[in-house]
């Protein structure tokens, strides 16, 4: 089980702040008038149906989605000037697993801003890479091709690439998507450990009960923010209905809020 830090709503110094942001791609605004504060040390889950703008929100913070109005501040500075602070793990479905790279070569990519004009990686890059791989328990896999790794190991390699530049913030796009229970729990514990070491984490997820319910703070998103707060406050039938446009009954089990899907009978009238 995770041991989350509480979201400090009283803090005057948010690490990430969105002020009335509208953003999207190719003159198509996906998120409208979004205001949000992420505090240092937060571990936040971003929930919402497919197409709700979760990935777009991450990309807006990263500076790769177009911001049409409003402002995104990172440590009170416009986000595009603060990129080295952020580590990013994209959805792994986009990765070409047949690409000829080893785990170490992938992690080294995260050091590109440290010696950009050298054609090779310097000693510090390599040391940092092996250190972070050791920390994440994948040091012994450094020479392995990425396709030879298990799902959890692949996730850790990309996590290591995001961390090797020493970021303060980690953005993860569906980091536990498609994982079995054991791998998912292992990954979540690694993230929890990183959060306890001081890294602020914002992650998108579709796993309401197994992931989001254990996080200290969740944001329900569907083109705009529907609600945010601790899961116990946010996971109500009304909020989830507004977020997912579907009936999702709530129940309690051993002190945990469980979100159920309304049972359907398919194929019968």
């Amino acid at each position: 089980m995770l041991h989350p830090k509480p979201h400090d709503t009283t803090s005057e110094n948010p690490l990430i702040e969105l002020r009335s942001v509208s953003c999207g791609y190719q003159n198509n605004s996906i998120l409208e008038n979004l205001s949000l504060k992420i505090m240092a040390g937060d571990f936040v889950g971003l929930l919402g149906p497919s197409g709700s703008g979760k990935s777009t929100l991450l990309r807006a913070i990263l500076g790769t989605a177009k911001v049409y109005s409003g402002q995104i501040l990172i440590e009170k500075t416009v986000s595009s000037k603060k990129q080295p602070l952020i580590g990013y793990v994209p959805q792994l479905e986009t990765i070409d697993w047949n690409f000829p790279v080893t785990a170490e070569q992938v992690v080294l990519m995260g050091r590109i801003t440290h010696s950009p004009w050298l054609p090779w990686h310097n000693h510090q890059d390599r040391k940092q890479t092996l250190d972070i791989m050791t920390q994440l328990g994948i040091r012994h896999l450094h020479n392995k091709h990425i396709r030879e790794l298990s799902g959890g190991e692949q996730q850790r390699v990309f996590l290591a690439r995001a961390l090797v530049g020493n970021p303060k913030i980690l953005l993860l796009d569906e980091p536990v998507s498609g994982m079995d229970i054991k791998t998912r729990d292992d990954t979540m514990h690694v993230l929890d450990q990183l959060n306890h070491e001081g890294i602020t984490i914002l992650m998108t997820t579709h796993e309401i009960n197994s992931v989001a319910a254990h996080l200290p703070w969740v944001i329900c998103l569907n083109k705009s923010i529907i609600a945010e707060g601790p899961p116990s406050a946010v996971f109500t039938a009304d909020i989830l209905n507004k977020t997912y446009n579907a009936e999702m009954p709530i129940t309690e089990f051993e002190g945990l809020t469980i979100v159920a899907e309304k049972p359907h009978v398919f194929g019968k009238k």
Binding site: G63, T64, Q83, V101, M109, I112, T113, P119
Partner: peptide, 20 residues
């Protein structure tokens, strides 16, 4: 001289953009 850049770009263009 642009070896690292070319590698990053062809492997993962989305994240290469994040790294500016």
């Amino acid at each position: 001289f642009w070896y690292k850049r070319f590698l990053f770009l062809i492997f993962d263009e989305e994240v290469a953009r994040v790294y500016r």
